[in-house]
Computed example of a mutant assay.
Amino acid sequence: MTTEPSAYHQRVAEEKRAAILRAATRLFLDSGYDRTSLAKIADTAGVSKATLFKQFPTKAALFDAIVTASWHKGGEEEPPPAGDLTTGLTEIGRRYVALLTRPDMADLFRIVIAELPRFPELGEAQFQRGKLPYFDSVRRYLESERDAGTAVIPDTELAATQFLGMISNYVFWPRMLLLQWAPGTEAMDHVVQEAVLTMTSRYAASD
C-alpha cells in the first residue's frame, strides 16, 4: 500500500499553497508585515490555520516562500546556450523585463522597503532567496560565454550587475516612486536592445 499522495491531493495542496501566498502578499502590502497575523492570512486564503501552519510554521517562513516563488516565476527557464552573446543577452534581457513588470514583483519590493527598518530580515530574504540566485544565473551565463571564447569578461560579477542594472533602472525602479510608470513594450524592448549593444561592444570577443 503506497503512502504517496495522489495526484488529486497534490493538486489540492498546491492550490492551497498558492492561495496562501496570494493572500499573504496582499495582506502584507495592505496592512504591513507586523500587523498581519497568520490567522488572518489563513482566513483570507480560505484555509484552516492547521493547513497554513503545516506548510508555514512562522511568518518568516511564509515570506521566504513568497520571495522564492516570485523570483522563480521568471527564472525557471534554462539559460541560453553559449555561442552567440547578442542572442543570449537579448533572451535574458527580455525574460528580466517580463519578471520585473509583473505586479507582484513591485508589491514585494514595496513590502520590503516599508518594513525594512523594523524587520531587516525581510531584506535579507529578498536578497538571498530572490535577487542573488537570479543574479548568479546571469553571471554563470556570462561565464559560459567567456569559456566558449565568444566573450572577454574579466569580471563576470560586474558585467552581470551592469547588464541587469541598465534594464532595471528604466523598467522597474521608477515604479517605486511613480505608481503610473508603465513604459510600453516597444520602449522596454529598446532598452534591452541598447543594453545588449552596450554589453557586446564592451565584452564581445574580436573575430
Rank of each mutant, 00 (worst) to 15 (best):
A151F: 00
I153D: 12
K40A: 01
S206P: 00
G123M: 10
T51P: 02
A69S: 05
L27C: 03
L132N: 12
E121T: 14
G184F: 08
D84V: 12
T185C: 03
R202L: 15
A98E: 14
K59Q: 09
E115Y: 10
S37P: 05
D43P: 01
K16Y: 11
R175W: 03
A24L: 12
P81C: 04
S137V: 06
Q180N: 03
L178P: 00
L158F: 14
P80T: 01
A125P: 00
Q128M: 10
P57H: 03
P5E: 13
D107N: 11
P57D: 03
M199T: 15
R140A: 15
V152D: 04
R17K: 07
G75C: 08
R95T: 07
A65V: 01
K59F: 02
H72K: 09
T2I: 07
L177F: 09
A24I: 14
M166K: 12
D189Q: 12
E124V: 07
I41G: 04
V12S: 14
A182K: 15
A195N: 08
T3V: 10
H72L: 11
L21I: 09
E15I: 00
E115S: 14
T44N: 07
G93C: 00
L99D: 06
A24V: 04
A114W: 11
A50I: 07
A23P: 04
A160S: 14
L29K: 06
V112F: 07
G74R: 04
Q162R: 12
L122V: 11
Y170I: 13
G32M: 01
S37N: 01
L178D: 15
F135T: 14
S31R: 14
P80W: 02
G165F: 10
